[in-house]
Amino acid sequence: MKILVCISNVPDTTARIAFEDNNTKFSKNGVQYIIGAYDDYALARAVELKETHGAQVTVLNVGLADSEPQIRKALAIGADDAVRVDAEPTDSYFVATQIAAYAEGKGFDLILMGRETTDYNSGVVHGMVAAMLGLPSFSPVMELTVEGSKAIISKEIEGGKQKIETAIPAVMGCQEPIAEWKIPNMRGIMAARTKPLQVIPAVGSALTGIINYELPPAKGACKMIPAEEAGTLIKLLQIEAKVL
């Protein structure tokens, strides 16, 4: 089996969000980058499938050279080789185009990624890739097993879940509890240093352009209500906040 896992390189959840160049550019200054939280689940499931079924796991990132520590981490977790498409991941369509262009004709049985990236939260790259390659797509996938040329998945829907059987190849956006996040061990870290990491140029161009960014207005102070008078909160919510 051949599995392609697409990972995003995103600011850590706790990162301070700030912009520079007249609010036209995200400020990377002092920001710690990580593999997108959902992508980590996709990677972990791919490595589990490799352990149980045998698989070649390729990890792909669309990003600049500063993504490479995260790509190496994915290799240390258990991916066999990596590809970096050398470009800023400017919009969903552009990223999907890169993934589809790379995957075309390479015979991947599964193309896995997170349900969304944790920076732009669009959640559409998997669907776009699948459409470009003429494959079925599923998201958010919470369970994934492979039996021959079929996959059985459990997918979250509003207020519940669906169990689906599908032909593969297929593209999936993953989320917990599909697998437990994996932490690289020393052997994995050593092995990752010599695993192949290919850098390829991007194709096509983005369909959108950022005009500028802004931060939300600062939150007002929290109004405290004594616990003994908790009931008065309901009146405040009705009269002052007007939400009841």
């Binding site: 959640g123 669907g127 459409a131």
Partner: peptide, 17 residues
């Protein structure tokens, strides 16, 4: 997300969420 993404991917169209 799933439905709009497939349609936008097919039509090579920009999508903003």
């Amino acid at each position: 997300d799933a439905v709009m993404a497939r349609a936008a991917g097919t039509l090579k169209a920009a999508l903003i969420g």
